[in-house]
Protein backbone atom coordinates (compact mmCIF):
# COMPACT_ATOMS: atom_id res chain seq x y z
CA UNK A 1 0.00 0.00 0.00
CA UNK A 2 1.36 3.41 -0.93
CA UNK A 3 2.76 5.50 1.90
CA UNK A 4 0.29 8.30 1.13
CA UNK A 5 -2.60 6.08 2.25
CA UNK A 6 -0.75 4.87 5.34
CA UNK A 7 0.35 8.39 6.16
CA UNK A 8 -3.28 9.54 5.89
CA UNK A 9 -4.40 6.99 8.47
CA UNK A 10 -1.57 8.14 10.72
CA UNK A 11 -2.39 11.84 10.36
CA UNK A 12 -6.06 11.19 11.07
CA UNK A 13 -5.35 9.22 14.25
CA UNK A 14 -2.72 11.67 15.52
CA UNK A 15 -4.97 14.63 14.81
CA UNK A 16 -8.16 13.20 16.21
CA UNK A 17 -6.98 10.94 19.02
CA UNK A 18 -3.53 12.28 19.86
CA UNK A 19 0.11 11.26 19.51
CA UNK A 20 0.03 8.74 22.35
CA UNK A 21 -2.83 6.78 20.79
CA UNK A 22 -0.91 6.59 17.54
CA UNK A 23 2.25 5.45 19.33
CA UNK A 24 0.25 2.73 21.08
CA UNK A 25 -1.29 1.60 17.80
CA UNK A 26 2.14 1.34 16.14
CA UNK A 27 3.37 -0.69 19.07
CA UNK A 28 0.39 -3.05 19.11
CA UNK A 29 0.49 -3.44 15.33
CA UNK A 30 4.16 -4.46 15.70
CA UNK A 31 5.29 -2.11 12.95
CA UNK A 32 8.74 -1.55 14.40
CA UNK A 33 8.46 2.17 13.52
CA UNK A 34 6.15 5.02 14.41
CA UNK A 35 6.09 7.03 11.20
CA UNK A 36 4.83 6.13 7.78
CA UNK A 37 6.70 7.97 5.02
CA UNK A 38 4.33 9.29 2.40
CA UNK A 39 6.85 8.74 -0.39
CA UNK A 40 7.59 5.10 0.35
CA UNK A 41 5.54 1.96 -0.19
CA UNK A 42 4.56 -0.51 2.50
CA UNK A 43 3.34 -4.04 2.53
CA UNK A 44 -0.47 -4.16 2.66
CA UNK A 45 -0.27 -6.39 5.72
CA UNK A 46 1.15 -3.42 7.66
CA UNK A 47 -1.77 -1.23 6.62
CA UNK A 48 -4.19 -3.97 7.63
CA UNK A 49 -2.44 -4.44 10.98
CA UNK A 50 -2.73 -0.71 11.70
CA UNK A 51 -6.40 -0.58 10.70
CA UNK A 52 -7.26 -3.64 12.78
CA UNK A 53 -5.50 -2.34 15.87
CA UNK A 54 -7.01 1.13 15.38
CA UNK A 55 -10.55 -0.26 15.14
CA UNK A 56 -10.03 -2.36 18.24
CA UNK A 57 -8.40 0.39 20.26
CA UNK A 58 -10.95 3.05 19.35
CA UNK A 59 -13.83 0.58 19.41
CA UNK A 60 -14.90 1.61 15.95
CA UNK A 61 -15.98 -0.29 12.88
CA UNK A 62 -13.69 -0.24 9.87
CA UNK A 63 -16.40 1.16 7.56
CA UNK A 64 -17.07 4.22 9.68
CA UNK A 65 -13.41 4.77 10.50
CA UNK A 66 -12.37 4.83 6.84
CA UNK A 67 -15.21 7.19 5.97
CA UNK A 68 -14.02 9.57 8.67
CA UNK A 69 -10.46 9.36 7.37
CA UNK A 70 -11.74 10.25 3.88
CA UNK A 71 -13.59 13.26 5.22
CA UNK A 72 -10.58 14.33 7.27
CA UNK A 73 -8.27 14.24 4.24
CA UNK A 74 -10.34 16.93 2.53
CA UNK A 75 -11.51 19.02 5.45
CA UNK A 76 -8.32 19.21 7.51
CA UNK A 77 -7.33 22.88 7.20
CA UNK A 78 -3.69 22.01 7.89
CA UNK A 79 -3.39 20.14 4.62
CA UNK A 80 -4.98 21.66 1.57
CA UNK A 81 -3.07 19.73 -1.11
CA UNK A 82 -5.49 16.87 -1.81
CA UNK A 83 -8.54 19.14 -1.68
CA UNK A 84 -6.96 21.51 -4.18
CA UNK A 85 -5.90 18.74 -6.55
CA UNK A 86 -9.43 17.35 -6.55
CA UNK A 87 -10.91 20.81 -7.07
CA UNK A 88 -8.99 20.98 -10.35
CA UNK A 89 -11.61 18.47 -11.49
CA UNK A 90 -14.31 21.06 -12.07
CA UNK A 91 -16.09 24.30 -11.33
CA UNK A 92 -18.97 22.63 -9.51
CA UNK A 93 -19.73 19.33 -7.83
CA UNK A 94 -21.23 17.79 -10.95
CA UNK A 95 -18.16 18.58 -13.03
CA UNK A 96 -16.06 17.21 -10.20
CA UNK A 97 -17.99 13.94 -10.29
CA UNK A 98 -17.43 13.68 -14.04
CA UNK A 99 -13.70 14.23 -13.53
CA UNK A 100 -13.45 11.16 -11.27
CA UNK A 101 -13.21 8.94 -14.34
CA UNK A 102 -9.76 10.41 -14.98
CA UNK A 103 -8.59 10.44 -11.37
CA UNK A 104 -6.72 7.16 -11.55
CA UNK A 105 -4.72 8.21 -14.62
CA UNK A 106 -4.17 11.73 -13.36
CA UNK A 107 -2.74 10.43 -10.11
CA UNK A 108 -0.43 8.08 -11.96
CA UNK A 109 0.79 10.90 -14.14
CA UNK A 110 1.87 12.74 -11.02
CA UNK A 111 3.09 9.72 -9.06
CA UNK A 112 3.63 6.61 -11.20
CA UNK A 113 3.81 4.17 -8.29
CA UNK A 114 0.58 5.41 -6.73
CA UNK A 115 -2.09 2.81 -7.34
CA UNK A 116 -5.56 4.22 -6.70
CA UNK A 117 -8.97 2.63 -7.14
CA UNK A 118 -10.43 2.95 -10.62
CA UNK A 119 -13.61 5.01 -10.61
CA UNK A 120 -16.29 5.23 -13.26
CA UNK A 121 -19.26 7.54 -13.14
CA UNK A 122 -22.65 6.65 -14.63
CA UNK A 123 -25.08 9.51 -15.15
CA UNK A 124 -28.64 8.35 -14.63
CA UNK A 125 -29.98 11.90 -14.85
CA UNK A 126 -28.70 15.40 -14.21
CA UNK A 127 -29.29 14.86 -10.49
CA UNK A 128 -28.61 11.18 -10.10
CA UNK A 129 -25.31 9.35 -10.54
CA UNK A 130 -23.67 6.10 -9.68
CA UNK A 131 -19.95 5.82 -9.01
CA UNK A 132 -18.50 2.39 -9.69
CA UNK A 133 -15.46 1.68 -7.64
CA UNK A 134 -12.97 -1.11 -8.27
CA UNK A 135 -9.84 -1.92 -6.33
CA UNK A 136 -7.87 -5.05 -5.67
CA UNK A 137 -7.13 -3.88 -2.09
CA UNK A 138 -10.17 -5.03 -0.12
CA UNK A 139 -12.19 -2.85 2.20
CA UNK A 140 -11.43 0.75 1.26
CA UNK A 141 -14.66 1.77 -0.47
CA UNK A 142 -15.89 3.95 2.35
CA UNK A 143 -12.67 5.96 2.30
CA UNK A 144 -13.83 7.22 -1.11
CA UNK A 145 -17.31 7.73 0.31
CA UNK A 146 -15.84 10.01 2.98
CA UNK A 147 -13.87 11.95 0.38
CA UNK A 148 -17.01 12.42 -1.76
CA UNK A 149 -18.99 13.63 1.23
CA UNK A 150 -16.32 16.16 2.13
CA UNK A 151 -15.95 17.33 -1.49
CA UNK A 152 -19.73 17.91 -1.79
CA UNK A 153 -19.46 19.99 1.34
CA UNK A 154 -16.49 21.84 -0.13
CA UNK A 155 -18.47 22.78 -3.23
CA UNK A 156 -21.46 23.73 -1.05
CA UNK A 157 -23.60 21.00 -2.63
CA UNK A 158 -26.28 19.03 -0.78
CA UNK A 159 -26.05 15.36 -1.72
CA UNK A 160 -27.39 12.03 -0.63
CA UNK A 161 -24.81 9.24 -0.80
CA UNK A 162 -25.46 5.54 -0.51
CA UNK A 163 -22.66 2.99 -0.46
CA UNK A 164 -23.04 -0.67 -1.27
CA UNK A 165 -20.20 -3.14 -1.08
CA UNK A 166 -19.54 -5.73 -3.75
CA UNK A 167 -16.78 -8.21 -4.38
CA UNK A 168 -15.50 -10.44 -7.15
CA UNK A 169 -12.36 -12.45 -7.93
CA UNK A 170 -10.36 -9.33 -8.72
CA UNK A 171 -11.27 -7.42 -5.59
CA UNK A 172 -13.83 -4.93 -4.37
CA UNK A 173 -16.54 -3.78 -6.72
CA UNK A 174 -18.47 -1.16 -4.77
CA UNK A 175 -21.19 1.22 -5.90
CA UNK A 176 -21.90 4.64 -4.50
CA UNK A 177 -25.19 6.18 -5.58
CA UNK A 178 -25.19 9.95 -5.55
CA UNK A 179 -28.30 12.16 -5.54
CA UNK A 180 -27.52 15.81 -6.09
CA UNK A 181 -30.33 17.55 -4.17
CA UNK A 182 -29.06 21.11 -4.34
CA UNK A 183 -25.87 22.15 -6.11
CA UNK A 184 -25.77 25.51 -4.34
CA UNK A 185 -27.02 24.59 -0.94
CA UNK A 186 -24.25 26.25 1.09
CA UNK A 187 -21.25 28.50 0.67
CA UNK A 188 -18.59 27.09 -1.66
CA UNK A 189 -15.30 26.85 0.27
CA UNK A 190 -13.65 28.34 -2.79
CA UNK A 191 -10.86 27.44 -5.13
CA UNK A 192 -8.41 29.68 -6.89
CA UNK A 193 -6.64 28.14 -9.82
CA UNK A 194 -3.43 29.95 -8.92
CA UNK A 195 -4.01 29.69 -5.18
CA UNK A 196 -0.98 27.54 -4.45
CA UNK A 197 1.39 30.32 -5.52
Amino acid sequence: MHGLVNRSIQRFVQNTYGEQTWADICHDAELGFANFESMLSYDSSQTEAVLNVTCKKLQRGRIGLLEDIGTFLISDPASDALRRLLRFGGENFEEFLLSLDDLHDRAQLALPDLDLPSLELREHSAKSFELQYKWQEPGFGTLVLGILRAMADDYGALVLLDHSHGQDDVGDHDRISISLLDAEFAQDRGFELGGAH
Binding site: F88, E91, E192, L193, G194, H197
Partner: peptide
Protein backbone atom coordinates in the same frame (compact mmCIF):
# COMPACT_ATOMS: atom_id res chain seq x y z
CA UNK B 1 1.32 29.53 -12.83
CA UNK B 2 2.45 33.04 -11.94
CA UNK B 3 0.06 34.70 -14.43
CA UNK B 4 -2.95 32.66 -13.37
CA UNK B 5 -2.29 33.58 -9.78
CA UNK B 6 -1.60 37.27 -10.48
CA UNK B 7 -4.77 37.85 -12.50
CA UNK B 8 -7.05 35.42 -10.67
CA UNK B 9 -7.79 33.36 -13.75
CA UNK B 10 -10.18 30.42 -13.40
CA UNK B 11 -10.51 27.25 -15.40
CA UNK B 12 -13.32 28.76 -17.47
Amino acid sequence: AETVSKFGLVSK
